[in-house]
Design a protein around this nucleic acid. Structure first.
Lengths: 347, 347
DNA sequence: GACGGGACTTATAACGTTTTAAATGAAGTA
DNA sequence: TACTTCATTTAAAACGTTATAAGTCCCGTC
């Protein structure tokens, strides 16, 4: 009647530009259901329809609404990563996350970060995530032989992958570095340089990989029949100055070690400083072989021999493994042990 | 009739334990709407009702479904942080994230991480997040004077906070470190130690804080009337070895600098190594004042004087600022400039 | 010419919230 | 008594998606 140029309302007015299934439905003339299935490439939808729907979807930049999908399907499309605050391993968190993100790229998964404030083993965070369905999968590190987080997750059938192994009989996905091989090789190198009393600086005892490192160290030591020493006052989680002080004190007493296998770059530096407090020089009175996780320090202190652990790669593998696990693959097949590249260790 | 002990079906059977508003409604006898409002502490709901509803909710461990809330309200309860892969600043990403997480604790916000793979300025990621409503707020660093990300966000009225300032006339929330003060103080310290030709190693030119550092440096230099030098072949983003090589080469030529203001710990170490390649010793032939962001290196190289930047605190402040911004506070009031604690710099 | 069955498509009902608009009583007022 | 007001509660609709269960057509078969 009047001059109200009301545009033909399809069904509901799109409130704000954001395209939805309905937008595509209106544009193509198909029903919302059809569009949904077409986008999901359901075989019952004709090829031509699928093509057309995809075309229009791409054209208008359609992106499914995460909230709606999550509400309907129960899948969150979220991977949660528990972050420990330890700084010993340079760039640990960031490298891992970059690897993870690389694996999660081009998947619908988002990476959400839950730092660990409270206790050392973040069981509460894990419980919260499992009970409230906050994620589809979980990632964490620094596992203990009978890690309560792993137990909880296994009991609940919740997908996860650890950086580090456990000793549960039920297999679970993990990506781990062969710390036995690292410690063995590091110690052998010290010995082959003529060092006769190697020492290894270990992570806290409760962690699984501490045992692996110890085992590698002891194997090399026994094979060579040399003396050895394991400090019980310090570990890799200690503040730097504590390690330095310890080394300094130890160097002043009889039968001081003359070779050091260090699980991280920071402890290697602390060792150098501690020893030099006593006038001892790296490469002369003693040697160090350290695990290297960044590009930083080996460039600075070329006399520290290093064996590389690629944390970005680790993260990427963890991402892949977790995705496979979420997709239903068997846990037993999702266990990755990354070997130190002994031959190319200096790269 | 028969002996089917069918329990009175309230309305719908709860399919899997997870409590919902309906659960509370059934338990208390109120309607779902009432429960929802009671939990939101709507003033129209009687005090007694609110109390009772909260009580039951706590009892059964009710937690609102994020997906449903997000779908209905449009709010995502997500904060997105764009992560740069630069390693120069030790522990940058992790410290910041811990601070952020601290600020976000006890809020409904989750922290999701979007690493930057592609180009240096992650405009695409920002655009994606804004256009598809992937988050309620955004956090990023390394701003440029007319940072395209900031422009995009300002245009769209999207809440964000930067680590670093810009030169847009429209104010926006930021938390920044006073790099002018840092460079000024660092340079003055070098000069007061008798150094007569300071050099400053700057970040890439395009970043805003490069100008601040330069300004601080030049101010100190001009005040003292000493010579100075600014390397144009290297910056803080360079690989370590490149910095070391440059220093080594420069030390061999005439009029070499005798004092270094370093924007990070790694470049300080690289400088030390480069200089020592030429037989020059820190504290003898030259001095260094560096920005310190971790506890690691100053313990190792006590002769490097440092000025501290607390990145965890920075992260926490950024979190607070962003929350305030999301809550509607004015951008102009949400600009924080963190001063170097000159007096307590050695802590 | 009715019937079974492919090959496609679709209406409807959820998922768990919040929002809008209304309903219910119990007072208070005229 | 009837009419308003207030305080409190509620039903119904909607957010955008997917799952379930029906539709359509059209073709070949008996």
């Amino acid at each position: 009647m009047a001059d109200t140029p009301e545009p033909a309302p399809s069904r509901a007015r799109p409130k704000s530009g954001k395209p939805t299934l309905r937008t595509i439905a209106d544009l193509t003339g198909f029903a919302v259901t059809t569009v949904s299935r077409a986008l999901g490439n359901a075989p019952q939808i004709s090829v031509e329809t699928r093509r057309r729907v995809h075309e229009v979807a791409a054209e208008i930049g359609y992106l499914p609404d995460r909230a709606a999908q999550r509400l309907k399907t129960g899948r969150t499309n979220v991977i949660s990563v528990l972050l420990d605050p330890h700084e010993e391993i340079l760039g640990y968190g960031i490298s891992l996350m970059h690897g993870l993100a690389k694996a999660l790229k081009d998947t619908p998964y988002h990476l959400i970060v839950t730092p660990n404030f409270i206790n050392d083993s973040n069981v509460d965070a894990v419980r919260h995530i499992v009970r409230n369905g906050m994620a589809d999968g979980l990632i964490f590190s620094r596992t203990e032989p009978f890690d309560p987080r792993v137990r909880l997750l296994l009991e609940n059938g919740f997908p996860f992958v650890t950086h580090g192994r456990t000793e549960f009989s039920t297999p679970h996905p993990y990506v781990d570095y062969d710390n036995f091989a690292f410690a063995y090789e590091a110690t052998r190198r010290l010995i082959s340089r003529g060092r006769r009393k190697p020492m290894i600086i270990l992570p806290p005892k409760r962690m699984t990989f501490t045992q692996h490192l110890l085992h590698g160290f002891m194997t090399a030591v026994r094979e060579a029949g040399v003396a050895y020493e394991i400090p019980d006052e310090i570990d890799l989680d200690c503040p730097v100055e504590q390690i330095r002080d310890y080394m300094s004190r130890r160097a002043g007493k009889p039968d001081a070690p003359d070779g050091f296998a260090c699980g991280g770059e920071v402890s290697a530096l602390a060792t150098i400083t501690g020893m030099s407090d006593h006038g001892l020089t790296l490469g002369i009175e003693y040697d160090i072989v350290a695990k290297r996780t960044s590009k930083l320090l080996s460039q600075i202190q070329p006399k520290v021999e290093t064996i590389y652990e690629d944390l970005t790669d680790t993260g990427e593998q963890m991402g892949r493994v977790l995705l496979a696990r979420i997709a239903g693959e068997d846990a037993a097949g999702l266990q990755v042990l990354l070997k130190p590249q002994i031959g190319f260790a200096e790269v």
